[in-house]
Nucleic acid binder design. Structure first.
Length: 466
RNA sequence: GCCGCUAUCGUCUAGGGGUUAGGACGGGUGGUUCUCAGCCAUCAAACCGGGGUUCGAAUCCCCGUAGCGGUACCA
């Protein structure tokens, strides 16, 4: 079946990431599909920031997302950085439109105020949904989908703090930006009735919906088959020395196979040939082994030695990084030849230097070391910006909360990062390595130490909360 | 629990009423090579289960099962 657009011209697709946490490969995957669909049909690809969750949204996360997508070779026609005819492209800067829409629905009796929660508190606005009957869900990849209205509860449109939920914000933004095709993850299928009803209540024509399968096997235990956990942060792959074209190719490979069997292809080939209607509807496991193989092919086939040297310089062997590493290693060097053994771990990928649990624990009980690593990971994760001073402060705070000295606390961290107890100073090394790589090594070491049970993690998290 | 989606080698997939069910990653074996990597050759490896429909089902239908998603004033 040939792929057709939603019937609207021109085609406009979008990706609407929430600026929280690390830029996720799943975001890149969906961005690629939206990008390719728009490009293939000569339309526009819009990047919009859906920062409706004020508590967790961060400007630095937004920049990280834009940077990661650009690094992958994706570009957009409209967005918060480059503007466009439907600016602003940040939801937080256009909450008024959402409030107006909610008020309009309220006035028309299609929505109602919900006084719940705290007595005398502000009220939320909910959409009134039918209590019986069945809706047809026009998913372009799954014909014949239906759902009982009885299984759909009234969604909150405007929270009592006056900010819109995803449901309202997305419908309002998609309409105002004249999005023709919404290509999003299948986790949204269940709330499609709400979105459809919203369009109808507002008197707007809904776009076409394409719900694509989710990537599997990120940081949760996805399958019984593959026990290894894949890193999901785009930054990790970047810092670990993967090439953007290989990562993008890999993401495309998950949904498109060429008849001839060649799995290496560039962005343009993918855009020109892939069909959204023919993607597999089963969620694909993100197989880092295969990614690594593909990356190797790019390295060998697309570059000569001089090119690889250039890649190396761009990656980590630039003067600035080298100088920073030299500063860390210098006090410990007797000959220039001491540099590589001392600082080599700063120029390696994501694998922890292989150590057995006992060696990694550095004289402590492995279980205790694992917990310290976990606490360090959490503290580092919350850091806004990854500077030496910030890292120092964060780790000091953890050590204090543990009631132990910083030196004692950081010993397992040195081992996790470098595999050696005698290495360059920790905080500077972490900054050079980068947040994603640092945290991945801590995580790997933690797993090598036997990990921390889920129950214990919860206890530690609760204790932190207080 | 309830609602929904999905189901081909361990993984990504091709195919699709009659095929030796094809390719790639990973794994095994052999060759090339100063080791390794690479490259070449080669082997093992799959249609979730049960009922239908049919001369014939992996393919169509139904029922199970499993995985995943949703069931938030998260997105």
């Amino acid at each position: 079946m040939p792929e057709t657009t939603g019937g609207r011209a021109p085609v406009r697709t979008r990706i609407a990431p929430s600026p929280t946490g690390d830029p996720h490969v799943g975001t890149a995957y969906q961005a690629l599909l939206n990008y390719a669909f728009a490009r293939k049909h000569g339309g526009a690809f819009v990047l919009r920031i859906e920062d409706t969750d004020r508590a967790r949204s961060r400007r630095s996360s937004e920049e990280a997302i834009l940077g990661s997508l650009r690094w992958l070779g994706l570009d957009w026609d409209e967005g918060p950085d480059c503007g466009g005819p439907f600016a602003p492209y940040r939801q937080s800067e256009r909450v008024d439109a959402c409030r107006e829409a909610a008020e309009r629905l309220l006035a028309a009796g299609k929505a109602y105020r919900d006084h719940g929660g705290e007595a005398g508190g502000a009220s939320a606005i909910r959409l009134r949904t039918p209590s019986s009957g069945r809706v047809e869900l026009p998913d372009r990849l799954r014909p014949g989908l239906t759902k009982d209205w009885a299984s759909v509860d009234d969604p909150v449109l405007l929270k009592s703090d006056g900010f819109p939920t995803y449901h309202l914000a997305n419908v309002v933004d998609d309409h105002r930006m004249e999005i023709s095709d919404v290509i999003r993850g299948e986790e949204w299928i269940a709330s499609l009735p709400k979105h459809l009803l919203l369009y109808e209540a507002l008197g707007w024509e809904p776009p076409s919906f394409w719900h694509v399968p989710l990537l599997r096997n990120d940081d949760r235990n996805r399958t019984k088959l593959s026990k290894r956990k894949s890193p999901t942060s785009i930054d990790f792959y970047r810092q670990a020395g993967f090439l953007p074209e290989a990562l993008l190719n890999f993401l495309g490979m998950l949904v498109w196979t060429r008849a001839e069997g060649e799995e290496k292809f560039d962005r343009e080939t993918f855009v020109a040939n892939f069909e959204l209607t023919s993607i597999s509807l089963a969620g694909a496991v993100f197989d880092t082994e295969k990614l690594a193989w593909l990356n190797g092919r790019y390295l060998r086939e697309d570059h000569d030695a001089a090119g690889v040297a250039r890649l190396l310089r761009d990656w980590r062997f630039d003067d600035r990084t080298l100088e920073a590493a030299a500063r860390l290693a210098q006090p410990r060097m007797r000959t220039l030849g001491d540099f590589a053994p001392l600082a080599g771990f700063l120029f390696a990928g994501g694998e922890v230097p292989r150590r057995d649990a006992e060696a990694l624990a550095g004289g402590r009980a492995p279980a205790e070391a694992a917990e310290w690593l976990l606490l360090a990971e959490w503290a580092l994760e919350e850091l806004d910006g990854f500077t030496e001073e910030g890292v120092h402060r964060a780790l000091r705070a953890v050590a204090d909360s543990l009631g132990i000295g910083l030196g004692r606390f950081t010993r397992p961290l040195y081992l996790a990062l470098s595999g050696s107890a005698s290495s360059t100073p920790l905080f500077g090394s972490m900054v050079l390595l980068g947040s994603a790589l640092t945290r991945m090594r801590l995580r790997r070491a933690r797993e090598a130490l036997g990990g921390v049970s889920r129950r214990r993690q919860k206890e530690l998290a609760d204790r932190r909360g207080r």
